[in-house]
Design a protein around this nucleic acid. Structure first.
Length: 498
RNA sequence: GGUCGGUUGGCCGAGUUGUUAGGCAAAGGUCUGCAAAACCUUGUACAGCGGUUCGAAUCCGCUACCGACCUCCA
């Protein structure tokens, strides 16, 4: 039960025992979105994954400082060093100020994070608000001799860095020699000493709107720089966990590591965690490939890829059923299954809350089994946040819960302590760790509806006692059409919203 | 082309050497006025070939297929 927390560290490609730098405290940085467009579902998966990780670390009792940035400058559309800024491009297309674009899509992003019931990060810094810090970092890298200036732009000297430190390529599994013989024909590479070098400060072309003064030129910071500067500012030069999507490993994270070494000669993070991609039709969900479905489309059902609408919590549940480091293929069938599984879990919890323990149970085999399942659920979470396994144990507990309710097992076969532990476990896992919400508990919130339903159920019960099956079934079918399901049990009829 | 990863039953998805993952779907049963729900039971699986091992879905090799990264993306 007291197994230590282990995490899959991308740096070592091994599962390692997690040890924070300062006992009881964790610094965690996750690369946030570039706010130039509506957030899409793939982003949501990553942020939901880290939300669960964050929630679990808090659950374990750690004081976590969770930093997730907003990229609102420096992220270029095309080739890393010559393309147009994503925000600027969008601003041009939508005929808005760049900061209007940033505001619009930041708000949209926050709304989506709220809908998916993710916790807000403790700090959400913006790249444009940290230009000074980034300029200082460029200077520090220059002072350390690991960058050079050309025509007002500053480039990181990747080749020199790779020679000095054995670090470059460790995260992404790349070798500097291979990067140096890069054959692709990139535009405007002339300024760089080597194709493997990358810009940390860019001189702005005349038409570039987003620009700041610096010692080298009026320009803007390179994309990779913001995360280095902001993580350092809020979490220190070396912190515990750095997270992000798999597709950021190279070049973004690799270059981030290089920049941090370049500025302070130390590693930014001890543990790198990477989430895997959300696929659709077996391929990476990607905005640029049009192989994508927006969260909104899922919620409204307005997409050729799905047969019906799905709720945010069904989606969240769907994501939790796979491990964050595995690819997850989005299909209509899988969503249908997840939706039902989600409902079964929430119903199970409701049933558990409705059970009463006599206070004088004896520990039977069931008691032992239940405690084992609970222990295992915790162990699974300690094992690199294995939500699908933890969830499997919860479902086995739901079997027990339903058996208590159905009378197949007597509640007296478990002790009051075990019963309470079950209730605590469900609350902890479903709400605090998995971050699920009950989307179907209208009955708990609306007294009028509750009273009304009780009346209808009573009336139907009278019909049934009079063997007036026509009336009884009409009530049931009409409610069914209204997406209210009646459940006839031994102790009367219950209802729930579909 | 290079690097890395994947291929699990009708679908999704865990598992990394020996014991039922789990969810959804399916079949039979219990309950019920009939259903639904719930419960019980059941089946179908580890891409192919070869090797290591007492024993492999799990380790190794080869083959096939798929994907990711190498270029903006979570």
């Amino acid at each position: 039960m007291n197994k230590e927390l282990t995490v899959q560290n991308s740096l070592s490609r091994k599962k390692e025992i997690f040890k924070p730098i300062h006992e009881g405290h964790i610094g965690m940085y996750v690369c946030g979105p570039t706010v130039y467009n509506d957030v899409h579902l793939g982003n949501c998966r990553t942020f939901v994954s880290f939300d669960v990780i964050y929630r679990y670390l808090v659950f374990l009792g750690y004081k976590v400082r969770y930093v997730r940035n907003i990229t609102d400058v420096g992220h270029l559309v095309d080739d890393a060093d010559t393309g147009e800024d994503k925000i600027s491009k969008r601003a041009r297309l939508e005929k808005l100020e760049p900061m209007e674009i940033v505001q619009k899509y930041t708000l949209g992003f926050h709304e989506m994070m709220r809908v998916f019931n993710t916790k807000s990060p403790d700090i959400e810094p913006r790249a444009s608000g940290h230009i000074l810090e980034q300029i200082e970092m460029v200077q520090a890298i220059l002072d350390n001799g690991l960058a050079y200036e050309k025509n007002g732009s500053v480039y990181f000297d990747t080749v020199k860095f790779a020679k000095e430190q054995e670090v470059y390529g460790q995260l992404s599994g790349r070798k500097i020699d291979e990067l140096m013989v890069e054959t692709r024909d990139l535009k405007n590479q002339a300024e760089k000493n080597n194709p493997a070098d990358f810009a940390i400060w860019m001189k702005a072309s005349p038409e570039h709107i987003m620009r700041w003064k610096s010692p080298w030129s009026e320009g803007f910071p390179g994309w990779h720089l913001e995360c280095s500067a902001m993580s350092t500012k809020y979490l220190g030069t070396t912190f515990d966990i750095h997270g992000g999507g798999n597709d950021l490993k190279f070049p973004h994270h690799e270059n981030e590591v290089a920049q941090n070494y370049g500025a302070c000669k130390c590693a930014p993070a001890n543990y790198w965690l990477h989430t895997n991609m959300l696929l659709m039709n077996g391929k990476k969900m990607s905005k640029s490939d049009n192989n994508s479905i927006t969260p909104k489309q899922l919620f409204t059902g307005d997409s050729e890829h799905i047969s019906k609408s799905y709720t945010p919590m069904a989606l969240r549940f769907f994501m939790l059923q796979s491990h964050y480091s595995s690819t997850l293929d989005l299909t209509d069938d899988a969503l249908l299954a997840a939706e039902k599984g989600y409902r079964r879990m929430m119903e199970g919890n409701k049933t558990l809350l409705g059970l009463q323990h006599s206070g004088k149970g004896n520990a039977s085999d069931h008691d032992k089994e239940i405690n084992q399942l609970i222990d295992q659920a915790h162990e699974h979470m300690n094992d690199d946040f294995n939500t699908p396994m933890a969830m499997a144990r919860l479902f086995e507990l739901i079997s027990k819960i339903n058996s208590f309710k159905g009378g197949q097992i007597s509640i007296d076969e478990i002790t009051a302590a075990t019963f309470e532990r079950m209730q605590t476990t469900f609350k902890d896992f479903i709400f605090d760790i998995f971050g699920l919400k009950d989307e179907m508990d209208a009955g708990d919130q609306n007294e009028a509806l509750d009273g009304l339903m009780q009346l209808v159920i009573d009336l139907r019960q009278s019909s049934r006692e009079n063997k007036d099956w026509g009336t009884s079934d009409k009530i049931r079918d009409t409610l069914k059409a209204l997406k209210i399901q009646l459940k006839d049990g031994k102790d009367g009829t219950e209802w729930s919203m579909e």
